[in-house]
Design a protein around this nucleic acid. Structure first.
Lengths: 264, 264
DNA sequence: CTTGACGTTGACGCAGCGTCAGGGTTGCAC
DNA sequence: GTGCAACCCTGACGCTGCGTCAACGTCAAG
């Protein structure tokens, strides 16, 4: 007769595993000797080896039981089932690896490659790093909501960067980040922004409108801007006084008659 | 400001996951509103998306924290590390699949293919099924202890099967399983067994001795025999009276002077 | 008699949340 | 005003397959 540790070592499992199998009813409890020790016969070793074999093949313990008592056809069925599961898990891990490989460094975390390239272009153009970080975070949000449209958005953005006046606006806005509310230079910035907006032609607007962000997403992006730039609120008010509303999704106010929006 | 479910849905995770990240310190707890609800800003969405991105890439949550704050080189290092882990897991699953594929049906469970073939040969020779099951269990034990030697063992066994007298002994032993202790036909069986043993030449014995099972393993196999065949003990005694000891590892007694072994 | 290696049960720990339970809040429709 | 659904909160258990104490009894050897 064998002790539990002998049984375990013959079967190539740990003593703890054997007790676990007893606890879950996978392996029947054997008789005890006078001092309460479990005593096993050789058949238990065989049974345990078969359990181990299935377990090591990735069969969940909950299914091992049925498999051991299954007929050939059920067994084949179950095996096919488990194989499917294993294949799926392998697929999953492969996807993980792909993703991991893409996560080379900071920016690419949670961004598709074209967006990373876009951020790189901003760097080339000498846009300050904190602006780029703001852009990056915004695009992370967009990429999470509309992954399928990212390529298009980024393409549009890169086209805009060809216009030097857009680039200079970017540079200017970086300064604005540091300004305190009430800074006297703000109205001039608002003027220049609005001038840019007015210069955009009708066809381009329609394209934007078609592929624009949802209002929810635009609100979210606006709130990021408002959270991180002290004068953001003031700047948006100034722009609104000039006939435009929003920030992420800038739109002409419906009533072109100039009205003050300060009062709320 | 966002509620927890809005945050979660923007980031593409469950509310429960967000709370879990709070609990583990992965995502900082935000401020609460008057009624104790958590309120998030857009930056939290970005942070959560980055966490999700890493988590979905198979990074353990315990490492996500460090990765988010890591510099480029550390990040690359960690990513390489995780990729290694993923590769290893994939390897593991592939091994599982291989094994699963081999587990076609009953016999092959926990046995190498050559052993399965051997059992098939026994079937061909008309050996009764319960004898084959006994053989199978014995070989499962052997395969678990000495997997590297299985091929050799099985080759020897198959050679033995070429001898028709060995086959007839097998058939005879199947009857013996049902006999009750004291059956008058037992001595004759013992005689025939011993005759077979005596016919084995010296060279063959030496080959057996070299590649034999360990005493422990032989004892284990003997005990299986003893457990499952009522007259096993008596048969072994009869064989011992004829100058041989054991069952799995039959050996000539050291003192060829015939002594009774019944008394213990 | 001591010591060390074994055996026993019972319990917590792990990863990453899912899923109640048992409350309170909010917002909308009636 | 009131009901209802849909949120929010905390706290706790569940899942998988054991590893790892803890606290104690047994056995064999020196």
């Amino acid at each position: 007769m064998l002790t539990i540790s002998q049984l375990a070592s013959y079967a190539g499992v740990t003593v703890r595993a054997v007790r676990h199998y007893h606890a879950t009813g996978l392996l029947p409890e054997p008789g005890r000797d006078a001092s309460g020790y479990r005593r096993y016969d050789a058949a238990a070793v065989v049974e345990l080896i078969r359990i181990r074999t299935l377990a090591e093949a990735g069969v969940p313990l909950s299914r091992v039981k049925e498999l051991l008592t299954a007929g050939e056809s059920e067994f084949a069925c179950a095996v096919a089932d488990i194989d499917r599961r294993l294949r799926a898990e392998i697929q999953e891990l492969h996807r993980h690896r792909k993703r991991i490989a893409q996560l080379a460094a900071g920016d690419s975390l949670a961004l598709p490659p074209e967006a990373v390239a876009y951020l790189g272009r901003l760097r080339e153009l000498g846009i300050p790093e904190r602006m780029i970080e703001g852009e990056r975070d915004a695009w992370i949000l967009v990429a999470a909501q509309l992954p399928g449209r990212m390529e298009m958005y980024i393409r549009n953005k890169r086209d805009q960067l060809e216009d030097p006046s857009v680039v200079s606006i970017y540079r200017e806005l970086d300064d604005v980040i540091d300004w305190a509310p009430g800074d006297p230079r703000l109205p001039a910035v608002a003027d220049r922004l609005v001038a840019q907006l007015e210069a955009i032609d009708q066809a381009e607007w329609e394209a934007f409108a078609e592929n624009g962000f949802s209002d929810d997403l635009a609100d979210l992006l606006d709130s990021m801007f408002l959270d991180q730039v002290p004068v953001a609120h003031e700047l948006m008010r100034l722009i609104q006084e000039r006939g435009w509303t929003g920030w992420t999704n800038l739109k002409r106010l419906e009533t072109p008659h100039r009205r003050s929006a300060t009062g709320g």
